[in-house]
């Protein structure tokens, strides 16, 4: 007879063994089951509640999305306009240029930097307009560029008015300077050639243009072009002639020939 391994023996016997519970065992368990809620049954109810809540949140976010965005963006535009106005003291409103700006619309935050760039461009344009009548008319023929915000126009108008008064003083000085030079040449030589007068006028004109560029503080392509071409402005030329008087007929003639 083979020896019996104790551990195999107890495993076999114990796994086959059955012990009947007491008679009231099920009653006790049933009582406990009644008092304890079953997790499996409650799960779908909680899932339904959670799903309903998520649905409400999604729908609400779609409904109030537009209102939320508009309420956020509108005040920013108004704030910017105020800032620009505060920066520049208002002195002169005599040179108002056409402005047909509609009341502020809804603007998204992404569009705002672009708007500022446009404002800067327009401010330089207006400066050119005040110094040169020819460019002024050309600017009027471009309606798209004239659609500028009111605040920006105020700023540019003030700048141009200040600069114009300074330029006028400088031009008058130049006129006097040219007249003095012509008179001294006339006293010395008794006659002044057309070329000599032309040279004096060109030099004076270059000085005026240089002053404009320095005051602008920005490299303006139009002003640089004017320097290169060195064309005489009609207003400056007329002032010189008025100062010299009728006796300088041949000066006028020389300039007229040069322009032709």
């Amino acid at each position: 007879m083979e020896p019996i391994k104790f551990e195999d023996n107890i495993r076999e016997k114990l796994q086959k063994r059955e012990i009947n519970p007491s008679k009231d065992a099920w009653a006790k368990l049933a009582k406990q089951l009644d008092s304890k809620p079953q997790k499996g049954i409650n799960k779908p109810i909680w899932f339904a509640v959670a799903a309903g809540f998520i649905g409400i949140v999604i729908v609400a976010s779609f409904l109030f999305k537009d209102e939320f965005i508009s309420s956020q963006t509108l005040p920013e535009l108004v704030e910017e306009t105020k800032l620009i106005k505060d920066e520049i003291p208002v002195e002169n409103h005599s040179r108002v240029v056409i402005v047909n700006e509609e009341p502020s619309k809804k603007v998204t935050p992404e569009l705002q930097p672009k708007k500022i760039v446009e404002n800067h461009q327009n401010s330089t344009n207006v400066r050119v307009v005040t110094s040169n009548n020819k460019t002024n008319t050309s600017k009027k023929s471009e309606p798209i560029k004239e659609n500028v915000a009111i605040s920006t126009i105020d700023k540019t108008e003030i700048n141009t008015s200040v600069e114009t008064s300074q330029e006028k003083t400088f031009i008058n000085l130049k006129v006097e300077e040219v007249v003095a030079q012509v008179q001294s040449m006339r006293n010395n030589n008794n006659s002044v050639s057309a070329d000599e007068i032309n040279t004096l006028l060109l030099k004076a004109q270059r000085d005026i243009n240089s002053l404009k560029i320095v005051k602008n503080k920005k490299v303006d392509a139009t002003a640089l072009l004017n320097v290169v071409e060195s064309e005489l402005e009609t207003s400056f030329r007329d002032k010189v002639f008025d100062a010299l008087g009728d006796s300088f007929e041949k000066v006028r003639t020389a300039v007229a020939e040069r322009n032709n």
């Binding site: 059955e18 012990i19 519970p21 065992a25 089951l33 499996g40």
Partner: peptide
């Protein structure tokens, strides 16, 4: 699984003797 008492009772009757033996070990 759905809380049917009768089914639970049947399961209990089927496995309780063996499981009481396990606990008794």
């Amino acid at each position: 699984n759905k809380g049917n008492k009768r089914s639970q009772h049947q399961l209990f009757e089927l496995f309780a003797p063996k499981m009481l033996s396990v606990c008794r070990q």
